[in-house]
Design a protein around this nucleic acid. Structure first.
Lengths: 282, 282
DNA sequence: CGGCACGATACCGTACGGGTATCGCCACGT
DNA sequence: ACGTGGCGATACCCGTACGGTATCGTGCCG
């Protein structure tokens, strides 16, 4: 199976419409139809149930959509990482690390310092990304290593090492009545009319429905908290980054959060191994 | 990047010889050379250092070899699993489970029985494979689920659930002097001139060097132990399968072995989820 | 210094991927 | 009921890029 065919298939499977899929692929509809038919012939299976007015995935098609996306990610990762390894003049980033923007700043600083002191250290580029995007970025090769937060980020498919386990705190506007408590429970934070939970974008950029404000990054989030418009739950170590107009209150019953360093299981590269070793020794 | 190019690249990278690689690919050498050059141009990187008498991987080439193999496995897996899902007439195997031949027989039997009793259970095909092959088979899509033994099998890149942890025993020929002990240590089994360790084949089918007998499966192994030609270390549960001419002796200091059920992290399929749920409830 | 092993280059034919035009089918509207 | 429009399939054409054969250039070996 060629990646071109897989890309065709995924486009049709996502659009469930040959015309739109062809448009997305920048081609005409007939060759697309033909390519899919040919793919079906070669696989010996029909992938779509279609008449002139409905296109639907068969069971086999659903399997290929899952597996095919993973395969395309793997190919894309191979391509990107090779490109990066190729253009490795000293000074250009030899290693890309994905972290959730605003999280674990002190741990991150310690890690980068310690690694830079290692013999054979290469330049590290840090990608700051929204919650839940590190997995994607690590999977498709834009990053080589990531810092994830269990149990919130899925580390499925990666090798990991635990670095740090912390309690969580509620981050609230300074002066809010709840800040009078020296401890809170998760239930206290549910359904507060004045402090609805913020809404983070999905991977596709769309926002879920709800009353809370839409946020894109942690700076924005902290500003909104300071303005008394929302609240958030964060690892204890976030205290060091709080502004004067926000307050952290320990949570009695929030799950403890573990920061782990994650990497694709076949990374045999020297810099990745060095960085991981450095991290585990912190 | 197309999978065809990746296959070309991997062939050359493994042979380090354009002529032989072309032969392996069933094509002539010139188009292969050209395809590699073109791949290098598109990636903007040289992948091989070559003159007329030596071909060697560059750093970028080494990266692409690792990542490319993984990507090809993923594509192959997508293809195989789709084919399997497509030809799913009731009766044909809907689920393939890879287990190390001869290991965990009783656990396996319980699992298969329990799963068969589930509503919505599909036919399960069991693949018996040599040690260390389950990962490959699971990765390239010939199996959907595998039973692995930690810490011996690498579960890197898969999701896992622990099922059972056991101590290990030494399996020896009946009547051998060592069987007089009611406990042994690993050191007692090293460098026994009369009982050299068996040699298992590598994934490519070749055998490592050494004095021990070459074995392909556990039946053969047990027979050779019975004949007093070798010994092995195995989980406690293997006792139920021993022959009369072999004896198990507990090991004081062998690492405990954990049987885990493993699956590719993106399996969203109903039968896989059912089987895993069944396994964790045993 | 001649022979050889090997990768690169040159050149050619063909098969396949993509485009345009058109058909066939079904749902819907009036 | 019939016309219309939307959509996937089919028919046909064309360009390109992939693979094959022949040959070259080069460095190693005897």
């Amino acid at each position: 199976m060629e990646t071109r065919e897989l890309r065709f298939f995924v486009a049709v499977a996502e659009e469930l419409h040959f015309g739109r899929a062809a448009q997305r692929l920048g081609m005409a509809q007939p060759p697309l139809s033909r390519a899919i038919r040919q793919l079906e012939r070669r696989l010996g299976t029909t992938l779509f149930d279609r008449d002139s007015h409905r296109v639907a995935l068969t069971a086999a098609g659903a399997v290929l959509l899952d597996e095919g996306r993973a395969a395309l990610d793997a190919v894309e990762a191979a391509e990107r990482r090779t490109r990066r390894a190729g253009s490795a003049e000293p000074g250009r980033p030899g290693l890309v690390l994905a972290v959730k923007a605003g999280a674990s700043t002190d741990l991150l600083a310690k890690l980068l310092d310690a690694y830079a002191a290692e013999p054979g250290a290469v330049a590290v580029e840090v990608i700051l990304c929204g919650p839940g995007q590190q997995e994607t970025i690590l999977r498709d090769g834009r990053a080589d290593v990531a810092l994830l937060h269990r149990p919130f980020d899925a580390a499925a498919g990666f090798d990991t090492e635990e670095l740090l386990t912390e309690d969580q705190v509620a981050v609230l506007p300074a002066g809010h009545p709840l800040t009078a408590n020296d401890q809170l429970s998760l239930a206290d934070l549910d359904d507060l009319p004045d402090l609805p939970r913020p809404r983070w974008p999905h991977p596709d950029g769309s926002y879920p429905e709800g009353p809370g404000p839409e946020v894109r990054d942690h700076t924005q989030l902290l500003q909104l908290i300071g303005l008394g418009r929302t609240l958030t739950i964060a690892p204890d170590s976030c205290r060091s980054q709080l502004r004067e107009d926000t307050v952290a209150v320990p949570l009695r019953d929030a799950p403890r959060v573990t920061t782990v360093i994650a990497w694709p299981p076949h990374s045999r590269s020297r810099p990745v191994a060095d960085l991981i070793r450095t991290a585990t020794r912190l």
